[in-house]
């Protein structure tokens, strides 16, 4: 049975806080720029509704668990938001069980491009690659049930791995019931053509390196962001030194007199 979603039907407009947690639609090959999303818990990086392209926001019937003869009403929100990198975006899906409903089988997600179906993994942590992290739903209103994160990784092959260009382009999103694969919902999604500043860009070790001041190319900074982990979690320590170049391009350290600078690490 193939049920095509009618966006005109069963439309529900609920607030972001009522949706629940965000789950990435992604793949282990990192279809979105790794730095597009923070490594912070998803609950801290939820995208404001004004900065995303929304494709779906409605109730979807999914097979209930453990009584598979029943259907669970699940609020499903699908949207894409952009990255700082041009023409790069991240696809999101949020599911939230209607209050009082049964638990449900987490759906499988596919992208159909010109007749080819590409499996998309559900991950509940940004930039996660471990298979056991996929497909686990945690959060209020949900009954934790691992369904298809691992399975989706296993069914990916060299022939059906979606490319970065395809992921960021237009395609048909297929939401397949996690219990009965004959039940599918199709949803057209469009490309993200713009770009936007990440909601919460982490200041991490990946930003260590040599930097020059815009407009003043003969001056710059050597920045080292060290991520020390102790009993209190990650404790960033940043070392910053200012330098200039001489006329032949050689590095001229400027802060030869050691100069401690108290840095305020800020997430933007």
């Amino acid at each position: 049975m193939l049920n095509k979603l009618s966006l005109a039907g069963l439309m529900l407009f609920f607030s972001q806080t009522a949706v629940g947690i965000e789950n990435f639609i992604t793949h282990a090959t990192t279809l979105y720029p790794p730095a597009c999303v923070s490594t912070a818990p998803l609950g801290e990086v939820s995208t404001p509704s004004s900065t995303r392209i929304q494709f779906l926001n409605q109730l979807v019937d999914l097979t209930a668990y453990p009584n598979t003869n029943n259907k669970a009403d699940v609020e499903v929100l699908v949207y894409r938001r952009g990255c700082k990198d041009p023409e790069r975006g991240v696809m999101f899906i949020s599911t939230s069980l209607v209050a009082g409903g049964e638990a449900f089988f987490l759906p499988r997600i596919f992208a159909k491009v010109e007749g080819t179906r590409y499996p998309l993994r559900l991950a509940n942590e940004p930039n996660s690659f471990e298979q056991e992290q996929g497909g686990t739903i945690k959060g209020s209103g949900f009954r934790e049930f691992i369904m298809d994160g691992v399975a989706e990784s296993k069914i990916a092959s060299t022939e059906n791995i979606i490319s970065i260009a395809q992921y960021n382009g237009s395609f048909t999103l297929i939401i397949q019931d996690g219990f009965d694969p004959s039940i599918e919902y199709e949803l057209p999604v469009t490309a993200y053509t713009g770009f936007q500043k990440p909601v919460n860009f982490p200041l991490t070790g990946r930003l260590s390196g040599n930097w020059v001041v815009e407009g003043v190319p003969d001056q710059g900074f050597l920045i080292s962001v060290n991520e020390f982990i102790d009993e209190n979690g990650v404790q960033n320590f940043t070392f910053l030194s200012w330098y200039t170049y001489n006329s032949d391009g050689s590095l001229l350290p400027t802060f030869m007199k050691s100069l401690p600078i108290r840095l305020t690490l800020k997430l933007s």
Partner: peptide, 12 residues
């Protein structure tokens, strides 16, 4: 402490 600096990561 002789000053302060704030780093804000905008992108990669």
């Amino acid at each position: 402490v002789v000053g302060s600096a704030t780093l804000t990561a905008e992108s990669c």
